[in-house]
Nucleic acid binder design. Structure first.
Length: 716
DNA sequence: GAGCACTGC
């Protein structure tokens, strides 16, 4: 963790004055930081931008990077936090002439990171954003023909590969944060490997963490061609990829383990925070737990202790929860500087590991677990499961304590347990539904997906399940080829395959406008504002019921959207009705984007402007529900005499999610659902009541009429 | 009676 060479430069905060006062100063200093890799802490702000650039640890590697990139086609750069690699490397490349033959592209897994880093680099170059330095994220293209340094999300890169399979606009591509192994990064790496063979002039920089650097170098090394296909390029023995390790600018973090395992990591973290508050000098604490329930529980326990602790230590304890579902205003509390003689304790989910950086953290308490999504290809069900973190994750969490001064990390497990942890987390590619990935690969011309060179090959069962679903939806034919135009159009829409199928079939049911709205609304996580307790909770529930209809959640979402448009997209109206204003605005954006796609695809577009109306009186609801079934027929369930639901496909037991409008109603005999999420039980989320005969009318290839007048799956 | 985190020409 500790930088060796860089430390001579390094002035610790507080070296030249009293600890207390400088310490506050530096926190406010870094308040602009909002991403993992941008500037966390800048003690050099009184220097010119050029001087600041030269003081970054990466600067001493400038020539090595340029040399290695001339000699190798792929360079894996292992850079620690705060090295400055994300902002500096693109500029080194620009300064040494790499933009004469093409752009420099840098991918980020998150949009905020792409935007904020582009802003910083533009500032360093003294140019307005969108000219020499620009960015592209979904819904937001801030580039021009002059743009030489282009920051994009990795999802955009994959989309760009569809339009331009050889990525001719770029001379150098840098995949930043590749160790996070997002689906899009993995697809991009698999495709880049192919592109590199055809474009010997293209250079690739992979920025990653220590643990998987060698695997990635070997993945991109073409000297020992490990595939059966003949490779004409580079048949000599020289490796084409290499690793460069770059030190970062972080402070040492002392790591403490438990002597013995504990039965309950939530109470153990609470006890540890109490001990820190009693024994350690002031400095904020960041606690990592797995979910909302645990965070709230821990906050409650600490609040119980806080009065006694204040009496004992004369320092206050300020406990702040932090998780994604928290309203933005509440999230901000985690970033606020605590008042004097107060220790802030932020109790967070995994959101604080990479997505959000909180300044001023000195102590980290790591429960050692994380909640992840895992996909079961047999049932097609996603589950949320709690698993131990990886070593890489544990290091990342501990590192959060060493950004302003040397810190301490307390792990709620033994050192032996640490040694047992996996090196890195399972890449997303190996634990999610593959249908969307396979559809994209097919659209990119990769027909034999089983032989595609994934950096982390997914299990074969997942591939088979994904192909079956795509076939059922009509996106691929008997030979596994993408159908035209349906399959191609499905791949081009930024929607899940089932939702894309629903939208593309909407013309048949004369409900394109409504299908667009439903597809857009399903992209939002939180439509309803849900106050925790008290009178407001009752009011929120009452407000929600105004929009609810017996047909289910899809039509309810449609009602909300049309009412939102009818009231003039008023934020006040949203507050009165306990709806997320920003979310609904986002739905408007997404809907526009989807509509543009349909127009481009020349999907017959009914221009009868939908008159927004409550109660859905103007819609032909049955046609809309048929349209939903045409996309979601594979997600059908019936009410079993036991009172629970069973999937039509394989009698898998399911429940209506409590957040569904159908939860409190008389359960309809037949439903389709958007997705299943397993927590304590398997819950259908976003449910719509249907007529059983629609299934065999609309998906005869998938269902047939059974002898007892029931729909049966031909396979069962 | 329930909600890890991201993202898309």
């Amino acid at each position: 963790m500790q930088p060796a060479g860089g430390r001579a430069f390094f002035r610790k905060p507080g070296d030249d004055s009293a600890q207390g006062s400088t310490w506050k100063e530096e926190r406010s200093d870094a308040s602009a930081d909002s991403s993992a890799t941008s500037f966390v802490y800048n003690p050099w702000k009184h220097y010119s931008l050029d001087q600041q650039r030269q003081r970054l640890p990466i600067y001493q590697y400038r020539n090595s990077i340029l040399y290695l990139l001339a000699k190798f086609q792929t360079v894996v750069i292992v850079g620690e936090t705060g090295s400055g690699k994300t902002t500096q490397i693109p500029q080194y490349l620009l300064e040494s002439g790499w933009t004469k033959t093409g752009r420099i592209g840098i991918t980020q897994p998150r949009r905020v990171a792409a935007i904020t880093v582009a802003q910083r680099v533009a500032e360093e170059r003294g140019a307005p954003l969108g000219r020499e330095v620009g960015y592209v994220v979904r819904f937001d293209d801030c580039t021009s023909s002059e743009t030489n340094i282009k920051f994009i999300t990795d999802g955009i890169l994959v989309r760009e590969m569809m339009a331009d399979p050889l990525l001719k606009q770029y001379s150098v591509l840098m995949l930043d944060e590749a160790h996070e192994r997002s689906i899009a990064t993995d697809i991009a790496m698999g495709l880049l490997k192919k592109i590199l063979r055809k474009r010997p002039d293209l250079k690739v920089i992979i920025s990653s963490a220590t643990l998987d650097a060698e695997a990635l170098r070997d993945f991109f090394d073409m000297s020992h061609s490990n595939t059966s296909t003949t490779i004409t390029k580079n048949n000599n023995e020289e490796p084409t990829s290499t690793i460069l390790t770059v030190e970062g600018r972080t402070f040492p973090v002392d790591v403490y383990y438990l002597k013995d395992p504990v039965p309950n990591y939530v109470t153990a973290t609470v006890d540890t925070v109490v001990k820190i508050h009693k024994a350690e000098p002031l400095g904020d604490v960041l606690v990592f737990l797995t979910g909302v329930e645990e965070v709230d529980h821990a906050c409650g326990l600490l609040d119980e202790h806080s009065d006694a602790l204040e009496a004992e230590t004369h320092n206050k304890l300020l406990v702040v929860p932090l998780y994604g579902a928290l309203p933005p205003g509440d999230q901000l509390k985690a970033f606020e500087m605590p008042p004097a003689r107060t220790r802030k304790v932020v109790i967070a989910t995994n959101i604080a590991e990479t997505s959000i950086t909180i300044n001023g953290i000195v102590y980290v308490v790591d429960a050692g677990f994380v909640k992840i999504k895992a996909f079961n290809p047999e049932s097609g069900v996603d589950s949320l499961i709690i698993v131990p973190t990886s070593k890489a994750s544990a290091e990342q969490r501990a590192g959060r304590a060493g950004r302003v001064r040397s810190g301490k990390a307390y792990r709620m497990y033994t050192e032996e347990a640490y040694k047992e942890l996996e090196d890195a987390s399972v890449p997303e590619m190996q634990r999610t539904s593959l249908a969307p990935v396979l559809l994209q690969l097919k659209a990119l011309g990769i027909d034999n997906v089983l032989r595609f060179n994934f950096p982390a090959p997914p299990p074969a069962t997942h591939v088979v399940q994904g192909l079956e679903l795509l076939y059922g939806l009509g996106a691929i034919d008997d030979n596994g080829k993408l159908t035209e135009p349906l399959g191609l159009h499905m791949a081009e829409l930024p929607l899940s395959p089932m939702l894309a199928r629903m939208l593309l079939g909407a013309a048949e049911f004369h409900c394109i406008e409504e299908a667009l709205t439903i597809a857009a609304m399903l992209q939002l996580e939180n439509v309803f504002v849900r106050p925790g307790r008290g009178e407001q909770k009752v009011n929120a529930e009452r407000a929600r019921r105004k929009f609810s209809v017996l047909e289910g959640d899809h039509i309810t979402l449609l009602n909300i959207y049309t009412a939102f448009v009818k009231c003039g997209k008023s934020s006040q109206w949203c507050r009165q009705n306990f709806l997320h204003y920003k979310g609904l605005c986002r739905a408007v954006d997404i809907r526009k984007q989807l509509e543009k796609h349909l127009i481009r695809m020349k999907i017959p577009h009914t221009n009868n402007n939908l008159e927004p109306q409550m109660e859905g009186a103007l819609y032909d609801i049955d046609n809309i529900r048929r349209c939903i079934v045409a996309g979601f027929f594979a997600n059908a369930a019936y009410l079993h005499p036991s009172g629970t639901y069973r999937t039509v496909r394989n009698d898998h037991e399911l429940h209506i999610h409590p957040a569904s409008v159908l939860y409190a109603e008389k359960p309809p005999p037949w439903v389709v659902f958007n997705e299943v999420l397993q927590t304590n039980q398997e819950f259908m989320r976003d449910v719509t009541a249907i007529e059983s005969h629609w299934l065999y009318e609309l998906a005869p290839h998938y269902y047939q009429y059974g002898t007892e007048g029931e729909v049966r799956n031909p396979r069962s």
